[in-house]
Simulated assay, not measured.
Amino acid sequence: MTNSLPLAAVVPAGGESRRMGRDKATLRIDDGAGPTTMLERVVSVVGARCAPVFVVAAPGQALPEVPAVILRDDVRGAGPLPATGRGLRAAADAGLSHAFVCAVDMPRLTTDLIDVLAGPAQRLGADVVLAWDGRDHYLAGIYRTALHTHIDALVDGGARSMRALVDSVDTQRIVMPEQPALANVNTADELAAMSPPRLR
């Protein structure tokens, strides 16, 4: 059953993707239904559960057309923390108390995973609810949108990592098995090993 907690979605998409060697947001894949991009795939999944969807891109970054609000980082290469803060601020301004924050390189993401996290987020009242399968998935979690002010303070103090955020607020980790929905694709070999998504 779909959890009733209203959620926005925030997708930081402006990373430099050094290991992939190219922009992952525009990486062409086949998701089983035909050719698409990594960004289009992720937005289609989160958009089935979350509204509005905010994509946070780098300045000048070219993106495919997606049914989402496109926000821009102030500077390129600042990392996911300020991008997450920008997205959470926009979600708060849109009237949402919580947002699902996810990476752009999760082609196996499912709405079921979002709802598994939404239940505890609604019950526990935590600031952050993360998936944990032996490691923290900072970009596969539900965040209170009011955290944008705390993120601004962290960034002003020189922080750039998501760990700096989750270690400084009430964070609950939901233990789950390793699964394709949580897999990040960081290299061309990792993408090629996934089926059906493949390089095109």
Rank of each mutant, 00 (worst) to 15 (best):
L199Q: 08
A9C: 04
I70L: 15
D152T: 03
P80G: 07
L71F: 01
A48N: 09
Q172T: 11
G32M: 12
A90K: 07
R173N: 01
A192Y: 00
M106C: 11
Q179N: 10
V175W: 04
S4P: 11
A91Q: 05
V45E: 08
H148G: 02
A131I: 10
F100T: 06
L191G: 07
G32W: 04
P197R: 04
H148C: 06
Q122C: 06
L63T: 03
P80K: 02
P35F: 02
M176S: 04
A78Q: 15
V56R: 00
R108W: 12
L39M: 08
K24M: 12
A140I: 03
Q61W: 06
D93M: 10
G85R: 07
R135M: 10
E190H: 08
P197T: 01
G85Y: 04
P107V: 08
L199V: 05
L117P: 05
S17F: 15
T110F: 11
Q172S: 09
Q61E: 14
V169Y: 03
A94P: 13
V155M: 11
I29T: 02
D152G: 01
D105A: 10
R86G: 03
A48G: 14
G77A: 11
D156E: 15
V101W: 05
A164E: 14
R144V: 06
R123D: 14
S4M: 05
A131C: 08
P177D: 14
D133Y: 00
Y138E: 11
A126L: 12
M1A: 07
D93E: 14
V56M: 04
P82S: 09
R18M: 11
A62V: 12
A118G: 03
L88C: 10
A13F: 08
T2D: 10
T37A: 00
L199I: 06
M1K: 06
P59M: 09
G60A: 03
T36Q: 02
A121C: 07
E65P: 00
V11G: 06
A58L: 02
P67G: 01
V101Y: 06
A118V: 08
Q172A: 14
M20Q: 02
D136E: 12
L199F: 07
P107E: 04
R72M: 00
S161H: 13
T36G: 01
C102Q: 06
A159I: 12
I29N: 00
A188Q: 15
A159C: 15
G60V: 02
L27V: 08
A33R: 13
E65T: 03
L124P: 01
L71N: 03
A91N: 04
F54N: 01
A8I: 04
L88T: 02
R200P: 15
L71W: 02
L124R: 13
P177L: 11
A94R: 02
M38S: 05
L117F: 08
